[in-house]
């Protein structure tokens, strides 16, 4: 029997298209228009061609923000992924404590970004914050508003605190899907704990870990609120990541042209990563036959 092809359902997508046009497409077009012009306000524009793109590509400031961003994302991944897997391996498999652990792990994920920032901003303060006060009393020179290392460590530990749970929960879901028969076979073969991890658990977690890595990478690459609340990008520029720098440029200095060029290049990088993310995920699904 021939299938009837009816494409009328596409009309149901129209409201979404209109919404996306107003919330994303039209603003993006405006950014493209801004990126090739210069303005001093009053809606008066002068043609600048590709000058802003050239300026941004030669800008020390953008490259160093990109460098900091890359280092930040790299450190985040190197800590959160192994730590998340370790946590997932330790979590109880069934019973009351399994549910309890799941709820506890999910808690940090429910807290809004700016609240997380505020929590750590206060927690790290030398005068009233528990962490800052204790470290200071121990004679450790910790002050995230002045010290480069203190600022970086605070921002990184904050992100680890906030997002390791996500990796752990994903890895836990991967672990739960392994049938008992695999473990029994490993036991019969007298496999070591490491061998069980290396040849059973890790391969079975591969798919979810891939998702976890890509999610964490994208999220950390676009991070804004938490470091902005805690350090404001300082001391100096030491924790000024890409989006913080972008906001400073666009809203702080009102350099619309350069900021537009910057954000378009930033957008392209994110688009590329998202595409890789999407492609890898759909191909993994196809391979696993899900």
């Amino acid at each position: 029997m021939d299938k009837t092809v009816n494409q009328k359902a596409w009309f149901l997508v129209l409201p979404v298209l209109v919404l996306v046009a107003f919330s994303a497409v039209i603003p993006l077009m405006t950014v493209v228009n801004y990126s090739v012009q210069d303005t001093f306000g009053d809606n008066v524009f002068f043609w600048a061609g590709l000058d802003w793109f050239r300026e941004m590509l030669e800008s020390e400031r953008m490259w160093s923000a990109l460098g900091r961003q890359a280092v930040f994302s790299f450190i985040i991944l190197m800590i959160e992924v192994p730590l998340g897997v370790i946590v997932a391996l330790q979590m109880p498999k069934k019973g009351f404590w399994a549910s309890f652990a799941l709820v506890v792990m999910a808690l940090p994920l429910l807290i809004p970004w700016n609240v997380v920032g505020t929590i750590w901003q206060i927690f790290g303060r030398v005068d009233i914050g528990l962490l800052g006060y204790v470290l200071h009393s121990l004679g450790i020179d910790y002050n995230y508003t002045q010290g480069f290392f203190a600022a970086w460590i605070t921002v990184i530990v904050m992100d680890v605190w906030h997002w390791t749970s996500l990796v752990a929960l994903l890895a836990y879901a991967g672990l739960q899907s392994i049938p008992d028969a695999y473990y029994q076979a490993a036991k019969i073969d007298q496999a070591s704990r490491w061998a069980v991890f290396r040849y059973i658990e890790l391969p079975k977690m591969q798919g979810v870990l891939m998702i976890a890595i890509l999610l964490r990478f994208m999220d950390s690459f676009m991070i804004y609120t938490e470091p902005f609340v805690v350090t404001g990008g300082g001391p100096g520029n030491s924790t000024t990541f890409l989006s913080i720098d972008l906001v400073k440029m666009a809203l702080g200095q009102f350099d619309l042209g350069p900021a537009a060029a910057f954000s378009l290049m930033y957008f392209l990088v994110i688009l590329l990563i998202s595409w890789v993310f999407y492609t890898v995920m759909t191909n993994l699904d196809k391979r696993d036959g899900v």
């Binding site: 077009m29 405006t30 493209v32 228009n33 801004y34 090739v36 012009q37 303005t39 524009f45």
Partner: peptide, 12 residues
Amino acid sequence: WMAWTWPTALFF
């Protein structure tokens, strides 16, 4: 307010 120019219009 969208500050259109011919080259960007052509691009789109």
